[in-house]
Structure formats: structure tokens, C-alpha cells
Nucleic acid binder design. Structure first.
Lengths: 340, 340
DNA sequence: GTTGGCACTCTGTCCGTGCGAGTGCCAGCC
DNA sequence: GGCTGGCACTCGCACGGACAGAGTGCCAAC
């Protein structure tokens, strides 16, 4: 029915105006700035209904309306068109990311790029170890009874771990260990690594078994260690931009959550490559993020997701623009990492 | 002379009171809170002199006095006693840092620890490559003509670099390269690495020379690359704590400088192990840091400095406390890294 | 050289007023 | 039945004057 449609049109107009001006929007301003074909009075009655339904609210009696979380949700789900990136933005992505020398460099550049494109806080998850595969395992002898185990994954991560050996070791043993480990774990998804340990221990030469057990344990532990899911954060200066207006003094808990990482990781980590996920305000189910929205997507290649990335900002954000930017950057990063 | 001494005592009292209360301090309050043995009127005349000399200033005519950068400088240089850490703090340092599994972990824990001890923004520089020594070089074959060069330093850093080979390579060549590289560069300070390249190229078997040239170049380049001096930042939430009061809305440029890293790195990097360096306000010679102070020190072991660490906060900070915390943490981190 | 007294200055706060924006309601119109 | 213009009403906010309080500088006295 026509009523319904116009009301949604009104909601869309409210969201757009509010996002761009940061002022509660009134019926008169709406009628002027948008071709809704009806008078302010009519818009007022639509707004009354929208408020009744919980999509908008007024900060105080004689102010305009502001979208609620529910209003933004409807906007994102049904009212926003995908906003294509400008040529300048596309070029910026390429220029920014090309020339990165290693994984750390790629992630750092990505997070800066995303922050500058969206003017929000950007976060990028390191490729999760559990979804990576072993490219190479290296054993370096530090002292007679101390080894360094270095893991290099196909996603470019390098992890290290010092291992105390129960027995003294010589150079030959190190070489043997290296080739055994690579033969066993080479190419394995790290999720499967644990399963290959028993077989390795059975078939290995007896004098190396004790050592291999320790090394395997260190390897498996590296994957399980919760700290190994890391986050790169950037653009926090954007929080200070319009702080107090957008975040109503809630900047601090947000900064804390970003440093804690664990909360944000949970949100960012739950994504598939390709599907942009938007969580609005209270949907984040965490106090510090109640006033914020998170736009995230997985990055990876060939249908395989390495990890997630996204932006965190006030609920009053440019959803279509941010969704487009996040998706485009994720796609590019996926290609980049697949190549190297 | 007695005058002079009492005036300094007044300055010390002003700094202490102002740091703890954040209110401009007046003559009457000073007389009440400190046993200066003279009346407010006398203190007033002392304050007039201190203001004349540029150590304190008044925000407006009828307010109390506030220390200037110059005043803090005098306080730090001559008026503050070293504040020993409490037992609880010492225990916190040990508990926090023990159990770190690798360098990244150590640095992350350190920055969090320092931030929570001082309630300021903490920064820790990664061990500089140019001052590290080669512990091991690893060559991993990715494809027929693509190698991954992995550098492991004695400070625990692991750097990687993809190298395109001009010729096709087989497994034997890789093993040969590995042992040649380790023989040449093993144990070398990275600053000296460049000097050993010509000799390596002369003595190497001819068929490997082209490849060795490329690998050596990649190694040297890794050291020179400005991006390789990195910073771990933590506790930025502390900026939001009393923001507006301390930083007068200058939080944003500060956050930007911290993300840029380069400015802060210059400040943090210029330190010797052992000597705590304090830079106050304008002394930082950078706009974004003009309202901030930086307390930094080098960490390392055996007289050798790996890198710097420190805290960044408002000029109105607890200098003795922060200096003590920074020094204690640096010492502990130095030991920790020397062991591993 | 120190002290108490005093006049002065300035800020922050409180309160009352007026203005403007925006709404809800209602009677009239298509 | 839905849309529109008009109108009264409600608030928030900015402006301005008055006032109290804190702190100073100066001066005469000790």
C-alpha cells in the first residue's frame, strides 16, 4: 500500500539527513530537502507512526526525530542501495596496498587505508592460525638443549616458540627433526595438525621421539593459545573527531574494548568472506559497544576465509559507504595475500 | 640563600598540589597544605617572583598558579626525589611479564603493564634491527623461482621477505644458500651486514652468486626499510580519562601522532639504556606533542640497548612515579629478553 | 623580611527572559 | 478517507545581568 511505502521513504530520508547533518530532523526540513510530494503536516503524521513503531525517537519534546537502532536496521536491510566506490577511492586502494613487503605491512596498510576511506576506526584480524596451512617449519638451535620452532603459514604468518629439549641435541638431529616435521605437517591445515601427531611419534626414530613430542606439543599449543588471534587497530583518532556528539562520552570504554581485543575479535571473527555483516548498537551485545555499529566482512581467497576486517563507528554512520569500502578492501586484500 | 630555597620549596609544593588536584593552586591553600612556615602573603611574593622567572603562570587574573613547562623542568631536574615502587607494583611487573611465549607477547604485555602502572599511554619500541645480531637465516622455497628469506635475530625478532630469483632453484641450492648465508652473517650485528656482502659474493660458488646478490640485497634492505622500526602502543583509553581537562581537546592530534609512529619513534628511539629521559611539553618540538610529556628509557641487557620504551601523558603528570615505573619495567624487560 | 588588612579583578554560576524550532491537533478541502 | 494549512503549545538554548567566591597585588605596620 502507498502509505507504507511513503513511510519507509520518510524513514530513509530521516536516516540520510541525520547521518549527514547530525541534527535531529524535523518535518519541515524533510519536506524541503526531499521530493516526497506531501506537506510537512502529512510527514508529521507519518513520523508519529514511525515513532509508534519504534523506528525513530525524539531526544526531547520540541526537537526533530532521530533514528533508533531498529530504524537503522530497517534502513540497512531494506532501504539502502549499494553505493559504488568512486574511481579515486578504487585507485587509493591499489596505491595504498601495492608495495607491501610482508604480512605485517599488508595489515598495517590495510587498517590505515580503511580508516582513511571511512573516517572510522578500522580493525583487521590477523589470518587465523586454525584456518591456515603449514608452509614450512623451521628448527633453529639456540643452545645445546634449547630449540626455536618457527612456523610459517601459507597466509604469511610467522610464529615462533622456544622449546626446552629434554636431551642434548646435535646439528644432525636438528636437520632430521626439520625434515620429519615438514614431512608430517607440511601443507596441513593447522586445525588438522593435532591429528597427525600420534602417527608421527609412532613412525619416528626412537631417539627423536621425546623431542618430537615436545615440539609437536609446542606447535599445537601455538594454535590453541587464545592470544594468537590478533587484531590490528587503526584510525582511533577518528573517535576524537566528533566525540561527545556521536559517542556521548563513551569513547573510553570503546578504546578499552579495542585494546582488549577479545570482544571485538569475537564480532569480527564471525564472518564469512563476501557477506558484509552489520551490527547496530545494542545488537553488539556488549556494553562498551552499545552506542556503536560494527561493519565487518571476511577476507580471503578462493572461498576460503583467512580472517575478518571491518570498521567500528557511531550508530550514526554512513552504512552504504562503509559497507562498500569494507567489502572492496577485503576483496583486494584477499587477492594480495593469495598471490604471495 | 634562604630565600631561594624557600622559593623552590614553594614551586615543588605547587607542582605536587597541581598534579594531584588539577586545580590552579593559590597561596592560601599552599600555606594550609604544606608546612612552609610562612604566611600566605609571603608565599604570594614568592609566587610573584616565580612567575617573573617563568616557572609558573596564572590562567587568568583571579586564579591560582599553574606550573609552566619550565617549572616542570626544574621540578624534574632538581626537586623530585626518586619514588620507589611499592611491593604490589613490583609483584605486578613480575606476574604480568612472566609466561610470555614470544617477543610479540612480551611487548604486548609490557605495554599493557606500563599503561596500567602509570595510567598513561604507554609505548614500546620493537628491538631495532640495526642494533640486533643475526641468530639465524632461513631460506624457504615457495615456488621454482621464489624464495622466502626469514631472519631471526638475537633479540627475538623474526622478519620475512619474499625474493624473486633470477634463475630456477633446486633443493640442494637452497641448502647451500642457507649454510652460506648463515656462515657469512651469523652473529653479525645487522649494522655490519652490508659490509660482509662483497666478500660473500667473491668467495661463493659462481652459480649461486646472482642469487646471493639478490638475497643479500633483500637482507640489507630489510634493515634500512624505515617501516621496520615499529612501535607497540597501549593505554590510549587513558587519554579519554580526564580529557578536556588535561589535554584541552588536543587528544586527536596526539592519537594521530601515536598512529603515525614516526614522530614518537624519534623521541623514544633516542635513549640510552638506564638513563630515564623526560621531555616536557614544547621540548618535544612537535605540535601534536606540545601539550604532552614523554618519559622514556632504553631497554636492553649488558649495556646494550635493544630499543626504547616509555609513557606519553599530559605535562601535568606524576613525574617521579612515572619515571620509576618506566625504569623498573625497562630493567625487567631487558633481563627477560636477554634470557630467551 | 614578614605579616595582616584591604581593595580590586575576574570567573563561574544562577536565574529570568525571549526566541525559534518543532510538534500535535483540528477543521476544512479534494 | 486522506491530505493540508493554521494554530496553540512545549521545550531547549542562547543571551545577559547579578552575585558570590577565590585569589591577587599593594601597603602600612611590626
Amino acid at each position: 500500500m502507498a502509505h507504507e511505502e511513503r513511510r519507509l521513504e520518510v524513514l530513509r530520508a530521516i536516516v540520510q539527513d541525520y547521518v549527514s547533518t547530525n541534527d535531529p530532523v524535523g518535518s519541515k526540513a524533510l519536506a524541503e530537502r526531499h521530493d516526497l510530494g506531501v506537506s510537512p503536516a502529512t510527514i508529521r503524521s507519518d513520523m508519529a507512526v514511525l515513532e509508534e513503531q519504534g523506528y525513530i525517537t525524539q531526544p526531547h519534546t520540541s526537537a526533530g526525530r532521530v533514528p533508533t537502532d531498529k530504524g537503522y536496521r530497517l534502513f540497512v536491510d531494506r532501504l539502502s542501495a549499494v553505493k559504488p566506490l568512486s574511481m579515486a577511492e578504487r585507485r587509493a586502494i591499489e596505491r595504498f596496498l601495492d608495495g607491501a613487503v610482508d604480512l605485517h605491512d599488508v595489515l598495517t596498510r590495510t587498517v590505515r587505508l580503511l580508516a582513511s576511506l571511512t573516517r572510522q576506526v578500522a580493525v583487521v584480524q590477523w589470518p587465523t592460525l586454525s584456518r591456515s596451512a603449514v608452509r614450512h617449519l623451521e628448527v633453529v638451535q639456540l643452545t645445546a638443549s634449547r630449540l626455536l620452532l618457527v612456523l610459517i603459514t601459507d597466509t604469511g604468518r610467522v610464529e615462533q616458540r622456544v622449546v626446552e629439549s629434554p636431551v642434548e641435541i646435535d646439528a644432525d638431529a636438528v636437520a632430521e627433526l626439520r625434515s620429519l616435521l615438514n614431512a608430517t605437517f607440511g601443507g596441513a591445515r593447522l586445525g588438522e595438525a593435532g591429528g597427525r601427531v600420534p602417527e608421527l611419534l609412532e613412525t619416528a626414530p626412537p631417539h627423536l621421539r621425546g623431542l618430537l613430542a615436545v615440539l609437536s606439543a609446542a606447535l599445537v599449543e601455538t594454535l590453541v593459545e587464545p592470544g594468537e588471534d590478533r587484531l590490528v587497530v587503526g584510525g582511533t583518532a577518528n573517535l576524537a573527531r566528533t566525540s561527545g556528539l556521536d559517542f556521548a562520552g563513551t569513547v573510553r570504554p570503546l578504546l578499552e574494548a579495542l585494546e582488549e581485543q577479545v570482544v571485538v575479535l569475537r564480532l569480527i571473527g564471525e564472518v564469512d568472506a563476501g557477506t558484509v555483516l552489520v551490527r547496530i548498537g545494542e545488537e553488539n551485545a556488549h556494553e562498551a559497544l552499545a552506542g556503536a555499529s560494527v561493519v565487518s566482512v571476511g577476507y580471503g581467497s578462493g572461498g576460503r576465509s583467512f580472517g575478518g576486517l571491518g570498521v567500528v563507528g557511531p550508530t550514526r554512520m554512513d552504512y552504504p559507504g562503509n559497507m562498500a569500502a569494507v567489502r572492496a578492501v577485503a576483496r583486494y586484500v584477499g587477492h594480495l595475500l593469495a598471490e604471495s
